[in-house]
Design a binder for these strands. Structure first.
Lengths: 340, 340
DNA sequence: CAAGCTGCATGAAACGATTCAGAAGGGGGT
DNA sequence: ACCCCCTTCTGAATCGTTTCATGCAGCTTG
C-alpha cells in the first residue's frame, strides 16, 4: 500500500541503499548475484522510483513542455506529434499545455513549468508580451525554442515557417484569379502569425501594379465559430462593397466561413472564393475542397524538439539557430476562377 | 543564475527557513512587517519554488494526467478541454499523454506517471489488457477514472457514452433508409468502443426482422488515412457484394471514406451512404455533410475530472460511480435516402 | 505577581534518491 | 609474508521543502 522506498528494498535484499541505487542506475557495477537479489526484492515489493526525489537530487527533470495556442487546432496537434517523436526517443516526456491564446493562462503555465524545473520549453507565444517570461526561463538555464515564430531576437532558437511568404502566395493566387476586392479574416493581430500573413498579403497587393482593396476583418480567435461570425458580418455588407474573395488566417476560420456562406445560400467559389492557411487534414475533405497554404507541421515539431535537446545537452557550446521553412500553396476548388 | 533556494531567501530577509515557508503557505501566520521583508527578498532573488522538493515532502504531486488514444483526434481534444477546465479550477495541472492506440506506449506512460506520483489519471485504455496496470495504480492510492469506457468492474469510476446504443441508432437509421447491405468500418476491435458500436449495430440488424448483411471491414487504427484505405478495399468488391451504406467507428474514418469515394467518382449518399461517429466539428463542414452519432465530448471530460477530484479529496469515504451519457444521432446528408 | 494565553519566529527532522569517499575482501606479483 | 590493486559494497551527506515541537515575548486574568 504505502509506496516502498529504496530503503525498504535494500533491507529486503540485505544490501545497502547505495547498492540498490547502483542496480537501478549502473547495473554493471554490481555483481550478478547481488543484482538479482535486488531485482527480486524490487519485484516483490512493487517498488517504483520516486521521480520527485530523483529530480530534487538531480536538479532538473526529464520532462519537456510544449505550450501551444490551442490543443484542439489540428495544426498544433500535428506539431505536437512531431515533437513527441523526438522527445520520447530521447527518453524524456512531453507535456502539452494550452494557452488558449490567453496571456494569463500562458503565464500561469510558464510559472508552473518553472517550478517544476522542466528540462526545456517549446512554445508558440501568444504575443510579444511573453518575451520577458521566456527571457527569465532562459536565464534560469531552461532552454526555450520558439515554434512557428520568427527570430524574436537571438535570445533563443526558433523554428518557423515564412508567414509573410505564405501570405504573399495566397494573395498572388487570388489576384491572378481576377479578384480585386479581397478580405483578410483573422485575429487577434497580437498573434504574430496573423500579422505576418496579413503583411505578406498586403505586400503582394502593393506589388501587383493594379489597384485593389484588402479589407481586414479581425476576429478575436482562430476557431471555426469565429470564422462563422466573421462570414456573417461580411455577407451583411452592401453588395458592391462585399469582397469577392477571402484569405483566412487559418483553416479553422476558413471552414467556418465556408459553412456560414453555404448555409446562407452563397456559392463558393462563385460568389466568394476562399483560401485558407495550414492545409490541415480536413481542408481537402471540406464541402468545397479548400485551397490552403501548407506548412510542414510535423517537421516543425520535430525540428523544434531537436534544437531543444541539442541546447539542453550542448550547454555552453550551444549557438542559437533559426530554422525557417517555406510554405507552399495548395490549390483546390475553393479558389477556382469564378464563372460570371 | 543558480536557482535561489528558500534558505538564501531566509538569509537575505534575516529570518529563518520556517518563516519563509510560512509566508509562502500560510501568509496570515506571519506578522505583516516580516512578511513584506520576505516577499521583497523573494522578488529580489527571483526565487521560484522547487516543486520536486515540495512534492517529495508532500508525497504526491498536483498534476493530473489524461491518457488518450490520439491527441490529433478532435474527439479527444474536446474531452481534454473539458477536463482542463475542471482541473485548472482546482489549481492543479493537466498533462496530456497520447498512447497512439499502442499498448507499449500506454504502459510506458503509466509507468512514468506512477514514478511521478501523479494525483490521478484519466484514461481511455487501449484495451482490456490495461486493467492490471490501472489496478496497480489504484492500489497505490492513485485514483483512476475510465473515460469513454464502461464500468470495467467496480474497481474505479468511469464516464462513458452508451456505445451500444450509439451503434443501434446508426444502424436503425440506415435500415430505415432502405439499406440492407451495410459495412461497419473501424478497428482495432480490441478498442472497446469499436467493439461496442459494432455490437449495437449487429443487435439492431438482428432485431429488425428483415434479412440484411453487416459486413465488417476492420482497420488497424481510427484515422482519416485508415478510412481511405478501407474505402479503397470496399470499392474493389464486385458490385453485387458491395455495401450500399457504411457505418464508421468514428468521424475520422468516415471523412477518409468520403474523400476516397469522392476521388474515385462514387457519389455519397447515392452510391454509398455514410454514417460517422463522434460528430466532430468538421463533420458538418465535410464535402457531403456527415450524419454522425454525437457524444457530449467536453462534458465527458468535465465529468471525468470531477469524479477524479472527488475521489482524490474524498479518500476513504469515496464510492465509485459510473456515469453514462446518451448519444444522439445527427442526420445530415451523407445518409440521405438514395435516389435510384 | 504567578499562571496561562496568544502571536510569532525558530530550526531540526523528515521525504527518497544519488553520489562519493572509503572499507572489506580476494587475487596476483615479488 | 607483504603490498597493491581491483571489484564490490557501504553509509553518510546532500538536494529544497514542509512540518512540528519548542522558545520567547508581551498580554491578560485572577
Amino acid at each position: 500500500m504505502a509506496a516502498a522506498s529504496i530503503k525498504e528494498v535494500a533491507r529486503h535484499a540485505g544490501v545497502s541503499l547505495g547498492t540498490v541505487s547502483n542496480v537501478l542506475n549502473r547495473p554493471n557495477r554490481v555483481a550478478p548475484a547481488t543484482r538479482q537479489r535486488v531485482l527480486d526484492a524490487i519485484a516483490e515489493l512493487g517498488y517504483v522510483r520516486n521521480d520527485s526525489a530523483r529530480q530534487l537530487r538531480a536538479g532538473r527533470s526529464r520532462t519537456i513542455a510544449i505550450v501551444v495556442l490551442d490543443v484542439a487546432n489540428p495544426f498544433f496537434t500535428d506539431v505536437v506529434r512531431g515533437a513527441e517523436q523526438v522527445v520520447e526517443e530521447a527518453g524524456a516526456m512531453l507535456v502539452v499545455c494550452s494557452s488558449g491564446e490567453d496571456r494569463a493562462r500562458e503565464r500561469r503555465h510558464l510559472e508552473l513549468l518553472e517550478e517544476q524545473r522542466v528540462r526545456g520549453v517549446l512554445i508558440t507565444p501568444v504575443g510579444l508580451g511573453s518575451q520577458p517570461h521566456l527571457q527569465r526561463l532562459n536565464s534560469r538555464g531552461i532552454p526555450v525554442v520558439l515554434v512557428d515564430r520568427g527570430s524574436g531576437g537571438a535570445s533563443c532558437c526558433s523554428v518557423a515557417v515564412d508567414d509573410v511568404l505564405g501570405g504573399r502566395l495566397a494573395m498572388d493566387h487570388l489576384l491572378a484569379q481576377g479578384h480585386r476586392r479581397i478580405a483578410y479574416l483573422g485575429g487577434p493581430f497580437s498573434i504574430p502569425q496573423v500579422a505576418d500573413r496579413h503583411a505578406g498579403a498586403a505586400a503582394a497587393l502593393a506589388a501587383y501594379g493594379e489597384p485593389g482593396e484588402l479589407r481586414v476583418a479581425a476576429t478575436d480567435t482562430l476557431t471555426v465559430s469565429a470564422g462563422r461570425r466573421a462570414a456573417a458580418e461580411l455577407v451583411s455588407l452592401p453588395l458592391r462593397q462585399r469582397p469577392t474573395a477571402v484569405f483566412c488566417a487559418n483553416d479553422l476560420i476558413a471552414l467556418g466561413v465556408l459553412q456560414e456562406l453555404t448555409t446562407r445560400g452563397l456559392r463558393v467559389p462563385d460568389d466568394i472564393a476562399i483560401v485558407g492557411y495550414d492545409d490541415i487534414e480536413f481542408a481537402g475533405a471540406a464541402a468545397v475542397p479548400l485551397s490552403s497554404v501548407r506548412q510542414p507541421r510535423e517537421q516543425l515539431g520535430r525540428t523544434a524538439a531537436q534544437l531543444l535537446m541539442e541546447e539542453a545537452e550542448g550547454g555552453a557550446t550551444h549557438r542559437h539557430r533559426h530554422v525557417v521553412f517555406q510554405p507552399q500553396l495548395v490549390v483546390r476548388h475553393s479558389s477556382d476562377r469564378p464563372r460570371r
